[in-house]
Design a protein around this nucleic acid. Structure first.
Lengths: 237, 237
DNA sequence: TGTATAAACCTGTATATACAGATAAATCAA
DNA sequence: TTGATTTATCTGTATATACAGGTTTATACA
């Protein structure tokens, strides 16, 4: 057994495997413990081990071959899935130093277009943050985010140089669903200067809208310098 | 029981539910049969019903609430998935007229970067097509595509003003997997002029690589005018 | 009438068990 | 040595069972 508590057992098994991968116990391409080995070492049933390994396979961390075993997948080979990710963790896991600069953090009256995204009346106010994420002190992403006060009432009192909005929001509100829209544009000067972009360099903008408990929790515009960034998506029919 | 054969039972249950949704037996928001109801009507175990409903939930077709039931999800509400789509069909389904102009259709020696994408030696040759897709006679997408001759030997003799490469390729080769990379860039003059783009307008470029039977079938670069295009993706945790 | 309480039903998780089918290694026979 | 066969291992699927915990409806009580 691994431990006890509120988190389901299969989730702990998943974490156990992921931790092992992160710790280097299992390198890319190597075999991870089989279902029966997990049954013996962790004292769980095979179906629980099966669920953990099956879900990790579905999430792209493992590959399974019937009759042979379960192996650590090469996630870099075919691009990361277009999913919600924590930029701080991404930067750190690539072996770089992450830091953040908070530009704006205040309450604002909802502008018409944003209010529409939230499904709110024009008069309602929203929390607004602007943060520049840096990799090795080089600007990497410009994050312009509006947050539903009903979902995160304490948003304005957070220190986002220590914890990204993503980390904070996933901690206090369960992420139900997310929508991404990607477009290319010439960014406004405010963004351009913060990202040290050349005057003729286009930007890749991701508009991310997330739902929690049926209501829109946050609408974020994430600006990336187009020439230094690629967004990956993967699809299996 | 539903039937017998090679396809797993849980898959048949999934198909059974999806067919019911398509047939209108269960409308959006309505409840689908509970696990125990499926156990009785289909004469299966609850765990099999559970697997079917759980997977359909993960795929976005259903929503589940513990203690209440399982309901048909509204898939249209929150954007299309970032998936392979047929541009001709997209344009027509939006009520517009689709046409295509074939710019290039020939065999070429594989340039180094492209050959790498295919996992081929430099010397190998590939099929190359350049097509501009028009919506109501306005340029809408510039498609620059390389195709593996081993997968589509008759590619060069097709009339792509009548049938898109996508339609042709999906007809002759099963799509196994696809990778997307999205980036923003200032397109080359050749692309810019074909799409009637302003000199300072950035472009959203999707590089799409697809696999069939374990080999790379095609690598396509799809250029969209950035200011007129949005790419959608959806994700559920 | 209003309010606890109980009952019924639902999903979520976990176990034990069973058989199949796929794969690779070991073994045996020609 | 080669080729066929057996054996061991591993995943894939399916069932029966059990209990926890959320949600709604019905019931009993004050």
């Amino acid at each position: 057994m691994i431990g006890a508590g509120a988190t389901p057992l299969y989730q702990k098994v998943k974490d156990h495997i992921l931790t092992g991968i992160a710790a280097g116990d299992f390198a890319v391409g190597e075999r991870v413990p089989s279902e029966n080995e997990l049954v013996e070492t962790l004292r769980i049933s095979r179906m629980t081990a099966n669920r953990a390994l099956k879900e990790l396979t579905g999430e792209g961390f493992l590959n399974r071959v019937a009759g042979v075993g379960t192996f650590v997948a090469d996630r870099r080979a075919k691009g990361h899935p277009l999913s919600i990710r924590n930029i701080a963790e991404d930067i750190r896991s690539d072996g770089h130093r992450y830091s953040a600069e908070v530009i704006t953090l205040q309450e604002e009256g909802a502008e018409a277009g944003i209010a529409l995204s939230f499904g709110l009346k024009n008069a309602d106010s929203l929390f607004h943050s602007v943060i520049v994420h840096l990799r090795d002190d080089t600007p990497h992403q410009y994050e312009d985010r509006f947050v539903n006060p009903a979902v995160a009432p304490d948003y304005l009192s957070q220190d986002f140089s220590q914890q990204t909005p993503y980390e904070y929001l996933t901690k206090i509100a369960p992420l139900q669903e997310a929508e991404h829209a990607v477009r290319a544009m010439m960014p406004p000067l405010s963004v351009r200067s913060r990202l040290n972009m050349a005057f003729d360099e286009p930007s890749l903008v991701i508009r991310r809208r997330t739902w929690t408990r049926g209501v829109v929790a946050t609408v974020a515009h994430l600006y990336h310098p187009g020439s230094r960034f690629e967004l990956f998506g993967s699809f299996k029919p």
